[in-house]
Amino acid sequence: MSDELKAVARERVGKGAARATRREGLVPGVIYGDKKPPLSIALPAKETALAANSDSFMARVINLDVDGKTHSVIAKDVQRDPVKDFVIHVDFLRVGKGSILTVNVPVHFINEEAAPGLERGGVLNIVRHEVECDVPGNAVPEFLEGDLTGLDIGDGLHISAIKLPPGVVPTITDRDFTIATIAAPASLKSEEDEEAEAAAAEEAAEGESEDAAAEDGDSTEE
């Protein structure tokens, strides 16, 4: 998908102006940041919806053409209609030279076929679909790769196993947090539960036998 969008400047602002913009088939938005005044804009609804539906929309720099002038921006907030789910407003943050941005970077998982746990029927339990990172404004990664090679049932993929691009640092730095785990399938859990119950029953039976033997010994002594 292209990293470019076109827009026009909006002179009127406010709820009434925003509703009028939507009636014209446009999406109202605003560009702010980089120590410059905010700029109200209107974007074509179809192109904006296509871009916003990408899982990397809020993790990549966009060249936003506003009346012929290009602004390097990153989407910071996408508001949607609560019923129909279409985009009703977009906030963009200017990306200045040398800026560091805090963004949520999506995680894509690879090599599922090389994970023994999945081959055995395990389930990929995704703990984090995206990771919040501080990234260079001129090198925002579209996604991070989580390699599942060698993971068995009960294993986890942690942030330390993710190869991060240069300059990309997770905002959580005090622990090696989990990205995903390989969970046991329901059938295997049932078998383990049955085995545990059988073992408990056997242990209880052995205990009862020992108690009975002890009582017989006591009776004999009397």
Score class of each variant (00 low, 15 high):
2 S>E: 15
3 D>E: 13
4 E>T: 12
5 L>S: 02
6 K>Y: 08
6 K>R: 14
7 A>E: 06
7 A>R: 00
8 V>I: 14
12 R>D: 14
12 R>Y: 02
16 G>C: 01
17 A>F: 05
17 A>L: 03
20 A>I: 02
24 E>S: 12
24 E>W: 01
25 G>A: 09
31 I>A: 11
38 P>W: 10
39 L>I: 10
39 L>R: 04
39 L>W: 07
42 A>K: 01
43 L>A: 09
47 E>K: 12
48 T>R: 08
48 T>E: 07
50 L>M: 12
51 A>N: 05
54 S>N: 13
57 F>T: 11
63 N>L: 14
64 L>Y: 10
65 D>Y: 10
65 D>F: 06
67 D>C: 07
67 D>L: 10
68 G>W: 03
68 G>F: 05
69 K>A: 08
70 T>V: 15
72 S>G: 08
74 I>R: 02
75 A>K: 01
76 K>L: 05
78 V>G: 04
79 Q>E: 13
83 V>T: 15
84 K>S: 14
84 K>Y: 13
86 F>H: 15
87 V>L: 03
88 I>N: 06
88 I>A: 07
93 L>H: 09
93 L>I: 01
94 R>C: 04
94 R>N: 06
95 V>Y: 09
96 G>E: 03
96 G>M: 06
96 G>T: 10
98 G>F: 13
98 G>K: 15
98 G>P: 13
99 S>Y: 02
99 S>C: 08
107 V>S: 01
108 H>W: 09
108 H>Q: 11
108 H>S: 06
109 F>H: 04
109 F>N: 04
110 I>H: 03
113 E>L: 14
115 A>Q: 04
120 R>I: 05
121 G>N: 05
121 G>M: 03
121 G>C: 03
122 G>V: 02
124 L>H: 06
126 I>V: 11
126 I>S: 02
126 I>C: 08
128 R>H: 13
134 D>C: 01
135 V>Q: 05
136 P>E: 11
140 V>M: 09
141 P>E: 07
142 E>V: 13
142 E>S: 14
145 E>I: 04
146 G>E: 00
147 D>I: 02
147 D>Q: 07
147 D>A: 06
149 T>R: 11
149 T>I: 04
151 L>W: 05
152 D>L: 08
152 D>K: 14
152 D>Y: 08
154 G>I: 12
154 G>M: 11
156 G>I: 10
160 S>H: 12
161 A>G: 05
162 I>S: 02
163 K>H: 10
164 L>T: 04
164 L>G: 07
166 P>Y: 05
169 V>K: 09
169 V>Q: 09
170 P>V: 03
170 P>L: 02
175 R>H: 15
175 R>T: 12
175 R>Q: 14
176 D>E: 14
178 T>Y: 05
179 I>V: 08
181 T>P: 00
183 A>I: 03
185 P>M: 15
186 A>H: 11
189 K>C: 08
192 E>V: 13
192 E>S: 13
192 E>T: 11
192 E>D: 14
196 A>P: 00
197 E>Q: 12
200 A>F: 07
202 E>N: 08
202 E>M: 01
202 E>C: 01
203 E>Q: 01
208 E>N: 12
209 S>Y: 10
212 A>K: 15
213 A>Y: 09
213 A>W: 03
216 D>V: 13
220 T>Q: 12
221 E>W: 11
222 E>W: 11
